[in-house]
Lab assay of single mutants.
Amino acid sequence: DRIFMTRTEALEFLLKAHQTAVDKIGHPSHKQTPADHAAIEALDRLLLDVRARRVDQFQINASAAQIIVTD
């Protein structure tokens, strides 16, 4: 599946995904793992790359739809 978004929409989408990941590892019942921190770092890099126009398409994980940034 493909989803087309403007750059602004894609950045909002990534910010929400980032916040969800941060909230998940901050929850008291969740045991933090290196994979959790790696996922947040990957989202940080992706946010910067989309914002800087170095990336025009991405996929958060293998089961997610491919996001295509349109400007």
Rank of each mutant, 00 (worst) to 15 (best):
D1W: 04
R2Q: 13
I3G: 02
F4K: 05
M5Y: 02
T6I: 03
T6D: 05
T6Q: 04
T6W: 02
R7Q: 08
T8K: 14
T8Y: 11
T8N: 13
E9Q: 14
A10V: 04
A10P: 00
F13Q: 03
F13I: 06
F13D: 01
L14R: 00
L14S: 00
L15W: 13
K16S: 04
K16E: 10
A17E: 08
A17P: 00
Q19T: 06
T20P: 01
T20H: 13
A21F: 09
A21W: 09
D23S: 05
D23V: 08
D23Y: 03
K24M: 12
K24N: 06
I25S: 06
I25R: 04
G26D: 09
H27M: 12
P28F: 04
P28Q: 09
H30M: 04
K31S: 15
K31P: 14
Q32S: 12
Q32D: 15
T33S: 14
P34Y: 08
P34Q: 12
A35R: 06
H37L: 15
A39F: 15
A39N: 12
A39P: 03
I40Q: 03
E41F: 06
A42T: 13
A42E: 13
A42V: 13
A42N: 12
A42F: 15
D44F: 14
R45E: 06
R45M: 08
R45G: 05
L47T: 05
L47I: 15
L47Y: 13
L48Y: 12
L48T: 14
D49K: 04
V50D: 00
V50K: 00
R51N: 09
R51L: 07
R53I: 05
R54S: 05
R54L: 03
V55I: 14
Q57E: 11
Q57G: 06
Q59A: 05
Q59N: 07
I60T: 03
N61A: 04
N61S: 15
A62S: 09
A62G: 15
A62C: 08
S63W: 09
S63C: 11
A64W: 10
A64P: 08
A65I: 11
I67Q: 01
I68Y: 09
I68E: 04
T70S: 11
T70Q: 09
D71W: 04
D71F: 06
D71R: 05
